[in-house]
Simulated assay, not measured.
Amino acid sequence: MAENKPRIVVGVDGSPGSRAALRWALRYAEHSNGHIVALIACGIPALIDVVLPMSEDDVAAQAERELRKAVEETRVLLGTRAPVEQRVVRDHAARALLDEAQEADLLVVGHRGHGGFVEALLGSVSQHCVHHAPCPVVVVRCAAGWGSQT
């Protein structure tokens, strides 16, 4: 924790749930004078005899664009100029988030609700983070009406 500022890691993948998590994290950081690390994970699984339409570098570049877009749009929506450190990690999302959370005070992830009973359950990444994170975890649900916004 640098200069007693809480270090807040937030997972971003462009989904409505991750954008809700980013909004929550930015608001929390403003109130706590925290430092945000927004992380997007991109990894190409090892597949045999499958031709992928993009190279690993193209996937990472696309992930970086998605992260930058989500952060910029969310900052505009909230009217904040809070600094956000942006990281693209070539790994599975849960592993990347847990690695980054090793030095964090808080990990914030989104919930990918599917409606009905399934909405009461956590997604695999958020569930893995809740069970294995070395710090407190906030799982943010995407409120109705926010799905099309940032």
Score class of each variant (00 low, 15 high):
Val88His: 02
Gln102Gly: 12
Asp105Phe: 10
Ser124Ala: 11
Gly123Asp: 07
Ile40His: 02
Val12Gly: 01
Ile48Lys: 11
Pro53Gly: 02
Val51Trp: 00
Val59Asp: 01
Ala2Met: 13
Glu85Asn: 07
Ala20Thr: 00
Cys42Thr: 14
Gly123Met: 10
Gly34Cys: 05
Arg19Trp: 02
Gly14Ile: 04
Ser55Trp: 06
Ile44His: 02
Phe117His: 06
Ser124Ile: 12
His114Ile: 10
Gly43Tyr: 13
Val12Thr: 00
Val89Trp: 02
Cys42Glu: 08
Pro83Val: 11
Asp49Ala: 09
Glu103Met: 10
Gly113His: 08
Arg81Val: 15
Gly17Thr: 08
Asn33Leu: 12
Ser18Val: 08
Arg95Gly: 09
Leu77Asp: 12
Ile36His: 00
Asp105Ala: 07
Ala120Phe: 14
Val71Glu: 05
Ala104Arg: 04
Glu3Gln: 13
Gly79Met: 01
Arg90Val: 15
Ile36Lys: 05
Arg27Gln: 11
Ile36Gln: 00
Ala93Asp: 03
Val12Trp: 00
Leu122Thr: 08
Glu64Asp: 13
Arg68Val: 15
Leu39Cys: 04
Leu122Pro: 04
Glu85Met: 08
Arg7Trp: 03
Ser32His: 12
Ile40Gly: 00
Ser32Tyr: 09
Ile36Cys: 03
Gly43Phe: 13
Val10Ser: 03
Val51Tyr: 02
Val76Thr: 15
Ala94Ser: 14
Pro16Ser: 02
Pro45Glu: 00
Gly34Ala: 04
Ala101Leu: 03
Ala21Glu: 01
Ala41His: 01
Thr80Gln: 08
Arg95Pro: 08
Leu26Cys: 07
Val59Ala: 11
Glu85Arg: 10
Ala120Tyr: 14
Gly11Met: 03
Glu72Thr: 15
Gly116Cys: 01
Phe117Val: 13
Arg7His: 10
Gly43Ala: 12
Ala63Tyr: 00
Ala104Asp: 02
Asp91Ser: 09
Glu66Phe: 08
Val50Cys: 05
Arg7Ile: 11
Ser126Glu: 04
Asp13Cys: 10
Asn4Lys: 15
Gln86Pro: 09
Leu47Val: 14
Leu106Asn: 04
Pro53Leu: 06
Leu106Thr: 03
Arg75Val: 09
Leu78Cys: 07
Arg27Val: 07
Ala25Gly: 04
Ala25His: 04
Val84Phe: 00
Asp91Thr: 08
Leu26Pro: 09
Ile8Ser: 07
Arg68Pro: 08
Gln86Met: 14
Ala25Asp: 01
Gly34Met: 01
Ala96Asn: 02
Lys5Asn: 12
Thr74Lys: 09
Ala38Ile: 05
Val10Tyr: 01
Glu85Ile: 10
Gly116Phe: 00
Arg75Leu: 14
Val88Leu: 05
Asp49His: 02
Leu77Thr: 12
Arg95Ser: 13
Val51His: 09
